[in-house]
Amino acid sequence: DLSALRVEEVQNVINAMQKILECPICLELIKEPVSTKCDHIFCKFCMLKLLNQKKGPSQCPLCKNDITKRSLQESTRFSQLVEELLKIICAFQLDTGLEYANSYNFAKKENNSPEHLKDEVSIIQSMGYRNRAKRLLQSEPENPSLQETSLSVQLSNLGTVRTLRTKQRIQPQRTSVYIELGSDSSEDTVNKATYCSVGDQELLQITPQGTRDEISLDSAKKAACEFSETDVTNTEHHQPSNNDLNTTEKRAAERHPEKYQGSSVSNLHVEPCGTNTHASSLQHENSSLLLTKDRMNVEKAEF
């Protein structure tokens, strides 16, 4: 173990290094160091905050020279020094078990990766560091076993998940096959086929009936047209017969005018059967003409 005197000496050296690497504005270890034209180094955030307070150039807090945003430059070497100082402080805390008085939040800088452990060898070769390295080497064999167990647990979990997924996939297939086998029997399929065939026959029977009705309507229309044509021909046949009657009536009127007047009046009210309204109107006109002729003949006879 380190003596108290040596611990104090190391602590004083760390404090001196820390004062050199402090920012003059925030009085902390410089984060993202930036250098000016006057070779003074500050935190990048502190300098941008200072420049944004005034429009135009501002003055350096140490030498009062003008500073602009374009004049600022990043210093990589200074950032490396800060990183190495942080590593020294971490090693000091691990070796002594004491917390550094002016320690900052170094938890963000710590890294437990194997590459980081290899890099620590180049920091300080001390008894405390050696003991700590031995402890780490002793704890390393235990870690692979834990990793193997965790991997086995994960693989077993994956296997159970896969088996569950396969079961879920197989179950719908089985149910679907069961439904297909038990849903419709052979008799049901035959009945469905016969039902479809009967429906098709009914459709075939319905369509000819409609065509037959249309044919019957067409035949009825044709018969009505033929009947009207026969009526017209009958009226045409009746007209010459009426003319013959008129000639006979004229002759009778010349011989017996008194008797014919009474008979002509009675004939006005008689309509021949089986004739249309057109034929009756023609008869009325003929009878009126005959009456006028008879009157003329009677007057001539009187004179």
Rank of each mutant, 00 (worst) to 15 (best):
D1G: 04
D1V: 06
L2W: 07
L2F: 02
L2R: 14
L2H: 09
A4W: 11
A4H: 06
R6V: 07
V7K: 05
V7P: 00
V7E: 01
V7I: 10
V7S: 03
E8G: 13
E8D: 11
E9V: 01
E9M: 00
V10K: 00
V10N: 00
Q11Y: 15
Q11A: 11
N12S: 14
V13N: 03
I14L: 03
N15A: 09
A16E: 14
Q18N: 02
Q18C: 15
Q18D: 04
K19R: 06
K19Q: 05
L21V: 12
L21H: 04
E22S: 04
C23T: 00
C23F: 01
P24H: 00
I25K: 02
I25N: 01
C26R: 00
C26L: 00
L27Q: 02
L27Y: 03
E28Q: 03
E28L: 00
E28V: 00
E28N: 02
I30L: 09
K31C: 06
K31M: 07
E32I: 02
E32L: 02
E32T: 03
E32R: 02
E32G: 02
V34I: 06
V34F: 02
S35N: 05
T36N: 00
C38P: 00
D39N: 06
D39P: 00
I41N: 11
I41L: 14
I41V: 08
F42S: 00
K44S: 05
L48P: 03
K49R: 07
K49P: 01
L50T: 02
L50E: 03
L50N: 03
L50K: 02
L50Q: 01
L50H: 15
N52T: 01
N52C: 14
N52G: 07
N52S: 10
Q53E: 05
Q53Y: 15
Q53C: 06
K54A: 06
K54T: 06
K54N: 06
K55H: 13
K55R: 10
G56C: 08
P57K: 14
S58F: 01
Q59G: 05
C60F: 00
P61A: 00
L62T: 01
L62S: 03
C63V: 00
C63K: 00
N65S: 08
D66S: 08
D66E: 11
I67M: 04
I67S: 01
T68W: 07
K69G: 02
R70T: 04
R70S: 15
S71P: 06
S71T: 12
S71L: 06
L72R: 01
Q73F: 10
Q73L: 08
E74K: 02
T76R: 03
T76I: 10
T76D: 03
F78L: 15
S79C: 00
Q80C: 02
L81H: 01
V82W: 06
E83R: 06
K87I: 03
I88F: 11
I89A: 05
I89M: 12
F92Y: 08
Q93I: 00
Q93E: 13
T96A: 01
Y100R: 07
N102Y: 14
N105Y: 10
N105R: 02
F106L: 12
F106Y: 12
A107D: 02
A107C: 08
K108V: 15
K108S: 11
K108Q: 01
K109Q: 08
S113C: 10
H116E: 13
H116Y: 14
H116Q: 15
V121I: 10
V121Y: 07
I123K: 09
I123Y: 08
I124R: 08
Q125R: 11
Q125T: 10
M127H: 10
G128A: 14
R130E: 10
R130S: 14
R130Y: 12
N131A: 08
R132D: 02
A133S: 03
A133I: 09
A133G: 08
K134R: 15
K134Y: 03
K134L: 07
K134F: 02
L136R: 11
L136Q: 02
L136C: 07
L137H: 13
Q138A: 14
Q138H: 11
S139V: 12
S139E: 13
S139R: 11
E140T: 07
P141K: 14
E142C: 10
N143W: 11
P144T: 08
L146H: 08
Q147A: 09
T149C: 06
T149F: 01
L151C: 12
L151Q: 11
L151F: 06
S152A: 13
S152W: 11
V153D: 02
Q154K: 12
Q154P: 14
L155C: 10
S156K: 14
S156W: 02
N157D: 08
L158I: 13
L158D: 07
L158H: 13
G159P: 14
G159W: 02
T160W: 12
V161W: 13
V161N: 06
T163E: 14
T163N: 09
L164V: 12
R165P: 09
T166F: 02
K167F: 05
R169D: 07
Q171P: 15
V177I: 04
D184T: 03
S185L: 04
S186Y: 03
E187R: 13
D188M: 11
T189S: 07
V190L: 02
N191M: 09
C196Y: 02
S197A: 02
V198H: 13
G199S: 04
D200F: 04
Q201S: 15
Q201R: 10
Q201I: 05
E202D: 12
E202C: 02
E202G: 00
L204S: 12
L204V: 13
P208F: 00
P208D: 04
P208I: 02
P208C: 02
Q209A: 10
Q209R: 10
R212Q: 08
D213P: 04
D213T: 10
E214K: 09
I215C: 07
I215S: 06
S216W: 01
L217Y: 15
L217K: 14
D218R: 05
D218P: 13
D218I: 07
S219L: 02
K221Q: 10
K222L: 14
K222N: 11
A223T: 10
A224K: 09
C225W: 15
E226K: 04
F227S: 13
D231S: 09
V232T: 14
V232K: 06
T233L: 12
T233S: 06
T235I: 11
P240A: 12
P240V: 07
P240S: 05
N242S: 02
N243Q: 14
N246D: 15
T247F: 11
T248P: 14
T248H: 07
T248K: 15
E249P: 14
R251N: 12
A252I: 07
A252F: 07
A253K: 15
A253L: 09
E254L: 01
E254H: 10
E254S: 15
R255Q: 08
R255V: 13
P257Y: 09
E258S: 06
Y260W: 05
Y260R: 12
Y260L: 05
Y260F: 04
Y260N: 02
G262R: 10
S263I: 05
S264N: 06
V265I: 07
V265L: 09
S266D: 13
L268C: 03
L268K: 08
L268S: 15
H269I: 03
H269S: 06
P272S: 14
T275I: 03
T275A: 13
N276M: 06
N276P: 03
T277R: 07
T277C: 10
T277L: 11
A279I: 01
Q283I: 15
H284D: 05
H284F: 02
E285V: 07
L289F: 12
L289A: 14
L290S: 08
T292I: 14
K293A: 09
K293T: 12
K293R: 10
K293Y: 01
R295P: 03
R295L: 15
N297K: 05
V298I: 13
E299H: 15
K300R: 09
K300I: 10
E302Q: 15
